[in-house]
């Protein structure tokens, strides 16, 4: 009995039947809250510590805000991943906005825009375990980041 419950819990995190991606359109300010809450919920379902759950949700909040601020609309996808026995959550933030020209400068910490928005992307990188940005000017931005539980 207990074993089967454990199995169900494990499936939830590692790719069992319940493993569903959460895909959320970001077009309004409220969508930021929705994405943030979904990230918090998923992190807790995956047994992340409170600190890691908070970091995960903060990162999603930053990515969603960047979408809304720079591209006006885009999508956030949350999915459960597992690598060498570790459970994690992958967040993918996609938009077809103006793209980021000076991505290296932003991620090296040498740049913050007047509104301090550059800090959001750099902060996200620091909060997550893996982080990748694909962006070309005029062709939108795709940010992929993973955080693993302890």
């Amino acid at each position: 009995m207990i074993r089967s419950i454990n199995k169900a819990l494990l499936d939830q995190c590692t790719g069992g039947a319940q493993n569903k991606d959460e895909r959320m359109p970001i077009t309004t300010e409220n969508d930021i809250s929705v994405a943030r809450d979904a990230a918090m919920r998923m992190a807790q379902e995956c047994k992340f510590t409170l600190a890691d759950s908070t970091s995960m949700a903060t990162a999603v909040s930053e990515l969603a805000r960047n979408i809304l601020h720079y591209a006006m609309e885009g999508t956030i996808v949350l999915s459960r991943v597992s690598e060498s026995g570790r459970n994690g959550i992958k967040v993918t933030a996609v938009d077809s906005g103006p793209g980021i020209e000076n991505i290296d400068e932003i991620l090296s910490g040498g740049y913050t825009s007047k509104t301090g928005m550059g800090l959001g992307l750099l902060g996200t990188k620091r909060l997550m375990d893996q982080f990748q940005v694909d962006s070309t000017a005029g062709n939108g931005t795709k940010v992929t980041a993973i955080k693993y539980g302890r």
Binding site: L50, A51, S53, T54, S55, T58, G109, L119, L122, G123, T124, R126, L127
Partner: peptide, 12 residues
Amino acid sequence: PAIAIALVTMGL
């Protein structure tokens, strides 16, 4: 505490 950790990690 979890927020303090996140803020410090982000460099805010």
